[in-house]
Amino acid sequence: MKKILFPTDFSESSANAYKYALQLANNTNAEVVALHVYEMPVIDYVNTPAYLLDVYNTVELASFENYKSHVPELKRLAAGFGLENVPVSSVLLEGDLVQTILEMVKEQHFDFIVMGTKGATGMKETFFGTSTASVMTDTDAIVLAVPDESTYKNIEKIVFTTRFREKDVPALKKLLTFADAFGAQVDCLYIKTQSSDLKEVVLADWRHVFRDYKLTFHIIDSEDIEGSILEFLDSHQIDLLALLNHKRGFFENLFKTSLTKKLAFHSKIPILAFH
């Protein structure tokens, strides 16, 4: 059985992502592990030893009580979505969120990570925005990042951004398997700039390799790569943006951009990232 890791801070952003996790589990015969991570405070004032144990005990107790009170809410949400049949277990751990996620994926071999993200407000990054970007960059698992302003709907149209490189092929094949579980159409999108070196023979080879799949190729001439991708998402009413892991800067730009147009598009469309 496949395994899906669902990190949650029990916020509305996390609850929004939870439905995606449950639906993905339901469609791929997977189980969901809901992970809540808390961190101990950093204390550096004088006479710390006298108070440190009391402080840590208080934090641990408060974290456990918060966790215990929210676990039933996960069951209630699943029932409300009509997905109470999906196997879900819950885990509470102390530590750094990102490192805990990476260690769990490495040790327990999760296939997917589904996380909520709030992106950023002005110059201040939010907790899940930065954490999701870091997890996307550093894990081998497939990561589904769900913006808190998106509203769940059936995944019917997916865009995969590509440069038609050889290393894109395994990711696209995984995506097609993912899309098949939802009965979704996949559009392969390439933004052609003046410096692009795409050869017709390469495109023809890709068309041949994927001729039996439910796949459409789009080539757009533009110097604004990210802007063109986001405009394509809007004009084609795309439900999911899939991409191969790029440099950290690419994700940071998606999560931190202050441009109203880009933020408006990004705030509604989940991102599926392949390592």
Rank of each mutant, 00 (worst) to 15 (best):
I4H: 06
L5K: 08
S11A: 01
S13V: 10
A17F: 04
Y18I: 10
Y18E: 03
Y18N: 06
A21W: 05
A21D: 03
A25T: 10
T28Y: 09
A34G: 04
Y38R: 05
E39L: 05
P41S: 13
I43V: 14
I43G: 07
N47K: 13
N47E: 09
L52N: 02
L53F: 07
Y56T: 09
V59K: 06
E60G: 09
L61M: 12
N66F: 15
N66E: 15
E73T: 02
A78Y: 09
A79L: 10
G80N: 03
G80V: 12
L83N: 04
E84M: 04
V86Y: 10
V91D: 07
L92Y: 03
E94T: 04
D96L: 09
L102K: 14
E107F: 11
H109C: 11
F110V: 01
F112K: 01
V114M: 04
V114S: 00
M115F: 11
G119W: 00
A120G: 03
K124F: 01
E125I: 03
E125Y: 05
F127P: 03
S131I: 03
S134R: 13
V135D: 07
D138P: 00
T139Y: 06
V143F: 12
V146C: 04
P147H: 08
D148Y: 07
D148S: 08
D148V: 12
T151E: 13
T151D: 13
E156V: 13
K157M: 04
F164K: 05
R165G: 15
R165V: 06
V169D: 03
L176A: 11
T177K: 07
F178K: 01
F178T: 07
D180Q: 12
F182I: 12
G183S: 08
V186W: 00
D187V: 02
L189P: 05
K192Y: 02
L203F: 12
L203N: 05
W206G: 03
R207M: 14
R207N: 15
R207T: 13
H208T: 12
H208R: 13
V209N: 08
Y213S: 14
K214M: 13
F217K: 02
D221I: 10
D221H: 15
S222R: 05
D224M: 08
G227N: 13
E231C: 02
D234V: 11
S235G: 06
L240G: 04
L240Y: 10
A242F: 11
A242W: 00
F250L: 10
N253S: 12
T257C: 00
T260R: 11
A264T: 14
F265W: 09
K268I: 11
P270F: 12
A273L: 05
A273N: 14
H275R: 15
